[in-house]
Nucleic acid binder design. Sequence first.
DNA 1: AAGTGGTCTAGACCACTCC
DNA 2: GAGTGGTCTAGACCACTTG
Lengths: 247, 247
Amino acid sequence: MKTDLPIDRHEPVAKRVRDLIRTRINAGEYSLNGRLPSEAQLCVSLGVSRATVRTALEALASEGLITRRQGDGTYVNRRAIGVMTRFEANWEFTSLIEGSGRKALIEILCEERRPASPKEASLLEVPKLEEVLAIRRVFKADGLPVIYTSDVLPTAMLTEPYPPEALSQPLLNFLEAYCGQHHLFNIADVSAALADREVAEVLDLPRGAPILRLDEVIYSSDDRPLLCAVNFYNEKALRLRLVRART
Amino acid sequence: MKTDLPIDRHEPVAKRVRDLIRTRINAGEYSLNGRLPSEAQLCVSLGVSRATVRTALEALASEGLITRRQGDGTYVNRRAIGVMTRFEANWEFTSLIEGSGRKALIEILCEERRPASPKEASLLEVPKLEEVLAIRRVFKADGLPVIYTSDVLPTAMLTEPYPPEALSQPLLNFLEAYCGQHHLFNIADVSAALADREVAEVLDLPRGAPILRLDEVIYSSDDRPLLCAVNFYNEKALRLRLVRART
DNA sequence: AAGTGGTCTAGACCACTCC
DNA sequence: GAGTGGTCTAGACCACTTG
């Protein structure tokens, strides 16, 4: 009945409760009957209010990791353990890959400065022919190529020079570190495409194979486009599995 | 400064507040500068507590419809109006279609009882060759075929006879009405495929065209599989556009 | 300094499921 | 009836942005 809550790191209590419960679930702590302690019990054992406990449980339920039944109790959703991938929660391909239990590696294929194409200028809301930084990369999982990405951002957004290895990290980190920009939301179009020569070669697929394509634009907190990207998933190597919990 | 809240229909106050604000946003009520009243102002004008207002605003923020900035205010995300489609919130193809401003129609292609295939039996967790009801349908938007669906559920789950027109509605309604089952969550695999003869014909596509494929299993609140389905999207006619809000 | 959203508490009542 | 999760309130303090 002691608190078990990690020491204060200026992190909201509800998040620490959420992470603690998630850790316990993944450790199989409730695997006997899949039932979690009641909210009241968690309040007492963790020393927090019920609202805080509920905030944590709501987050886990919206991830699909637990299900709650009024009048009954809260249960682990065993089908969502491990294989779970929630689109809304996955901004980083590296975490997507490592969530499937493999080692993620980013390889840079090409990095160039050039004028924006008409479509890119329109998506980024910059003047035609504005100079952009274009980066093509491939994400590997345990050495296997799984995602091909092509990212474009205006060079005017760069606030300071960056070292070459800066591009070997997720670009959201790059945006914060070298552009001073915080992302807030993005809009993504999901579609099916056929692998062209370059994509097929990089992802080690037959040319013309069907492939998942994701076109996305990332926006800052003050609603300006930061970056546009086209991504191709090699679904043979990386399943895009989503859990939808009823709202 | 009067309440404006719709009359009580046994619906949670927070949901009514959420819907009211959503209606106001869509009506362009805050389109001058895109700024919503502060939480405190909403509390007073709607006559509810701040926690209730925040529950409503949190839901809208997770839809991507509004953005909130600490120390500043709450703003409409104009990029998410109208075109928005949130995967987690879209269980019904009909609402997906009508959300794009078109008229949805369901057409039944085939309805049969037959033994389950090995894969179906495994997904539905029933004995091999168990009898299932298989339904193939096409969803049309303003008359254009946009989604091809193939649904399979064990006939043992049917609790009462159903009229033929029952299949012309979303199957989640069917599950409630004729199987007495409530769905709780589903797991979906997104992939790219090539249109085979039947799919191409039904969706009016060239054979071999790339097409989005969604394999899903729907589970009940007590964690049993209710239904498995394979769906094909004609993305030329129905864009799958998603908004991701940072959590 | 004032106002905003972010977090947390304590307490209440309700609807529902189980025994 | 006892216990569970679902909802709502009132109040407090904090971090942050803006003037």
